[in-house]
Design a protein around this nucleic acid. Structure first.
Lengths: 201, 201
DNA sequence: ACCTGAACACCGTTCAAGT
DNA sequence: ACCTGAACACCGTTCAAGT
C-alpha cells in the first residue's frame, strides 16, 4: 500500500461505520483497529478526525441524539412531554446498543440540551412550579436512562429458553412470577411508566 | 517465586479486591492482571476460581445485590415498596460504580429474585391487579436501572467548573435551566420519582 | 493535512509446567 | 487442586516517516 494517499475519510464516514459496528455487536466490539479495517484504512487514520476512542464515542452519542427530532409540539403539556420522551425511547427500541451507549456516557451531548428545553417549556406551559418542573423533568430523565438497560435484561431472558437455567432453585410462586414478568412489551411498558409519572400532576 | 504454592486465594478474597478496584476507578479499570497484582498473585491464579472476567463481573453483581437487605416490611404496600427500592438505591449512592455494574449486566443475579418477590408480595397485598402489579413493578425497575447512569451525568457536571465548557453556545434561558437542573439531591430526587410512580394507584 | 507501519504498554485467555 | 510463566491474539495510542 502506498503511503499518504487520501482515502476520503471524514467524521461522517467514520461515524457511519462506527454505528454499524455498535448496532450489530455493542460498544465493546468497537475497536479502532476493527473500525479501521471496516473503512479499508489503518486504525491510525481515524486519529486524524477524532482525538481518541472516548471522544469518538461522545461524538456518536451527540450524533445519535441529534437525530431525534420529535414531532411538532401539540396538545396539552403531558402530551408534549410524552411526545418527546417517546421519540427518545424509540431509539432504544430501534437501536438498543446505540442508545445504551448514549445513556452510559456521563458527558452529555449538546443535542440533549435542545430536548431538555423542549420538555421544560412544556412543563412551564403546564403551569408547574419550578420545584415540580425540576422533579418531573428528572423523573423522566431517570426513566430514559434506565430504559435501555432494563430492556437488555428483559430481551436476554426472552431470548433464552423458556425454562431458563436461572430459575433452577426458585419456589413455584417465584417461577410463575418470573415468567409473568417477561411477557411485557417494552414500548408499552415505557408509556405506562411515563403516564404514571405525569399523572401525579 | 516458587511455583504451585497455595496463596489462600478464594472467591471471597478475590471479590473483595475486585470491589475495591471498581469502587475506586470503575469497571473499566478492573483487569485480570491488575486484580492479580492487587492480590499478590499471577493473573492466571484467578482463573482457578472464576472461569473468565465476564463471570467474575456477574459474581460481583450477585454479591453486591445479596448484600442489600431491606428492613423488616411494615406499613402499607407503598411504604413497603419504597422501603425495598430505597435500600437498592442506597447502594447507588454509596458505591455508584458497583451499582452501575450491577445494572449494566443483562444477566440478572439470583439475588435480584428475592428482592423481586418482596416487591411483588407488597403489590399483591395492596390489592393491585396482576396487570397493575406488573406495570408498577417494571416502572420501579426501570427507575432503578436508570438511577446510577442519571446520577453519573449529574455528578460529572457538578464536579466540573460552575460555568462548564458545555454551556458555551446556549441561550441565557438554557444556561439558567442547565444550572437549575444540577442543584438536585440524587437521593431525594429518587424518592420523589418513586412517590410519583406509586401515587398513581 | 492526511495516511502509513512499527513500536510500546497494555489487555483476556490458553497451555504446559510445576507442587 | 492450585499457582506459575510463556505465548497468542488482541487492544489504544505515540511516533517517525511518507505524500
Amino acid at each position: 500500500m502506498t503511503r499518504g494517499v487520501r482515502k476520503g475519510l471524514s467524521k461522517e464516514v467514520i461515524l457511519k461505520a462506527a454505528f454499524k459496528i455498535v448496532e450489530s455487536g455493542g460498544v465493546e466490539t468497537l475497536s479502532m483497529r476493527r473500525l479501521g479495517s471496516e473503512l479499508g484504512v489503518a486504525a491510525m487514520a481515524i486519529y486524524n478526525h477524532f482525538p481518541d476512542r472516548e471522544q469518538l464515542l461522545d461524538a456518536m452519542a451527540e450524533s445519535a441524539l441529534a437525530e431525534i427530532t420529535p414531532d411538532e409540539q401539540k396538545g396539552n403539556w403531558k402530551k408534549q412531554v410524552t411526545n418527546v420522551a417517546r421519540s427518545v425511547a424509540n431509539l432504544s427500541i430501534e437501536k438498543p446498543a446505540v442508545f445504551a451507549l448514549c445513556m452510559s456516557r456521563p458527558t452529555k451531548p449538546k443535542a440533549a440540551v435542545v430536548l431538555m428545553s423542549k420538555v421544560l417549556e412544556a412543563l412551564r406551559q403546564g403551569g408547574l412550579s419550578d420545584k415540580e418542573a425540576l422533579a418531573c423533568y428528572h423523573s423522566v430523565l431517570i426513566l430514559l436512562h434506565g430504559f435501555p438497560f432494563w430492556q437488555a435484561g428483559l430481551t436476554k431472558y426472552c431470548a433464552a429458553s423458556p425454562d431458563s437455567i436461572a430459575t433452577a432453585d426458585l419456589s413455584e410462586q417465584e417461577k410463575r412470577d418470573w415468567k409473568l414478568l417477561h411477557t411485557v412489551d417494552p414500548a408499552k411498558q415505557f408509556e405506562a411508566s411515563l403516564a404514571l409519572l405525569l399523572d401525579g400532576y
